[in-house]
Amino acid sequence: MKPGRKIEEKIFRGLMIFSTYFILAILAIIIYTIFHKGMKSLTWAMLTQIPKGGYYYGKEGGILNAILGSLYLAIGATCLAFLIGLPVALYMNVFLVRHKKVVAFIRFLLDLVWGIPSIVYGAFGFSMMIFFGLQTSLLAGILTVTMFIIPIMIRSMDEILRTVPTGLMEASYSLGSNKSETAFRIFTRQASSGIITAILLSFGRAIGDAASVLFTAGYTDNLPNSLLEPVATLPLSIFFQLSSPVPAVQDRAYASALVLTVIILVVSLFSRGLGKRYHNTKINF
């Protein structure tokens, strides 16, 4: 072997190891920065109070409005997306199982939609709102975010449902159940762990996205009372507090970012844990 090759081999092996650890290190730095900066200014009052007068100039108050608003918005959108998404995913995998080309086309379409940036959904949602004469509101926010997470929801459920063995479907038919029963009773149970993962994944996306709610959900210092009122969201609250010139308010932005990151981390952990737990209810072939 020529010596040059040996050196090339060494260099590239080194670069590969470097890249892998670089990615892990970046993650560690991000988590460290968020926790380090956020812990300092995170107080109990911040989590349990709504912004009082002059909050954005450094006065008393908290971000309860944004926390609750984000939760309402994300839960609402996730429920809606689930209600629309589950039938679609089941339909693709039970009813259309013989039409491979149609299913492939739907998957392709969903993947295309998945790639559309969330700001485009925001702009579209906004133009629809004006068209129907709606104000910025929780409802408009939920509808926009639903559009944005539906492809994520369906494709993740679909990936699990397509692994359900055909034998199970045939066994169900041979026992006399029809297609809907097979879909809703058998397939959902067999894929329950994947469905839960899909829901939590979509929830994480919904709560973290700012660009799509920027136009549609609005912003308010009050707690959300009805579907037709504007609602504050955590990402936007971070964004607004950060653009304040007062250092104390910027510190609160760091704390808010910590809250949001913790929510995301908890959701991510839950989805791993639940996924493992429901694995046991599966029938193995």
Binding site: I23, I26, L27, I29, I30, I31, T33, I34, K37, G204, I207, G208, D209, A210, A211, P235, I238, F239, L242, A253, Y254, A257, L260, T261, I264, L265, V267, S268
Partner: peptide
């Protein structure tokens, strides 16, 4: 998974800080 889950606003904030 965690890197993918971190919201873009938090990335932006980290960008400003670091």
């Amino acid at each position: 998974d965690i890197l993918a889950g971190i919201p873009s606003v938090v990335y932006g904030l980290w960008g400003i800080l670091v």
